[in-house]
Design a protein around this nucleic acid. Structure first.
Lengths: 145, 145
DNA sequence: AAAAAATTGACAGAAATAGTCGGGTATGCT
DNA sequence: AGCATACCCGACTATTTCTGTCAATTTTTT
């Protein structure tokens, strides 16, 4: 059971974007420096985030990325869905996904239930929640750079 | 976000064991054939399960494995903990696990909350629950072999 | 047209996982 | 005592997945 860093990076980058932005586009270079994430890797993520309509790109000089929607309308599970394929791929079923009426179906039900649990948890948190949380922490702490 | 097949195999094998057993030890060879899992791979898993006191081994001819505890006292998260190291390793923190007071702490809180969610879900299901479920399915279906 | 900036796709290194193989050790039956 | 059964253990390999990088292209502004 593990969460890919890809998902973690995407969430962090978006929180950073939302936190930094004053309405004008933010370059991923700025995010990269602030979050210490490889610039090129971030590019990959933002390509997917744009396709998933989480962010909008503004090309040309002075360009960058802006949130495509209000942060309260962006949930964490949407972000994860966008950057990786599935939140929880199941490898326990027969290759064709059918049920052979053996024990697999029993255990499958467990993982599927778990998957739903995970999803609903992630769906209950929005980017705005995290940003507010992050803002609090930043002001409550001494600067660290 | 994915669940290792190791955990899935372990759970399936234990359900199978509990389902097949009439009190006498069950050989992993039998489980291997029933669940179509490599014998040697299963052995590896059962070594860990024995160390984790989920099962007990009976040596010599006529031997095999028996559950070490009542199935109602074996929860799924115990099984997973036993066969793999951690349910949810976090890679989002600084290598030493400290908080650098940046945005990491915000997003860390998300993953940690998620980890607890997952754990409590898996802790709420026992081997007995799954076995009963499996028994129902087996009798409710036509034989498939 | 030139320059700046974003987009794209292909690619390589690293890490984790799945599964295999061979030998060893303890136990019970004859 | 000896043999067969069945668990125990460590090392090894192949495969997949993930992470991260590089180079080339397209678009927009000046």
């Amino acid at each position: 059971m593990r969460m890919s860093t890809k998902a973690q990076y995407a969430v962090r980058a978006l929180v950073s974007l939302n936190l930094t932005s004053d309405g004008a586009p933010v370059t991923i270079k700025a995010i990269s420096e602030q979050e210490k994430i490889s610039l090129n890797y971030l590019e990959q993520l933002f390509v997917k985030l744009r396709r998933g309509e989480i962010v909008q790109s503004v090309r040309g000089p002075g360009g960058g990325y802006v949130l495509a929607r209000h942060p309260a309308d962006i949930t964490i599970d949407q972000i994860i869905d966008t950057v990786e394929e599935a939140i929880m791929p199941l490898s326990c079923m027969n290759d064709d996904g059918s049920c052979s009426c053996g024990l697999e179906c029993t255990t499958q039900a467990v993982w599927q239930g778990l998957g739903q649990q995970i999803r609903s948890f992630l769906a209950s948190m929005t980017l705005e929640d995290l940003t507010n949380d992050g803002r609090q922490r930043l002001t409550g702490c001494v600067s660290n750079s």
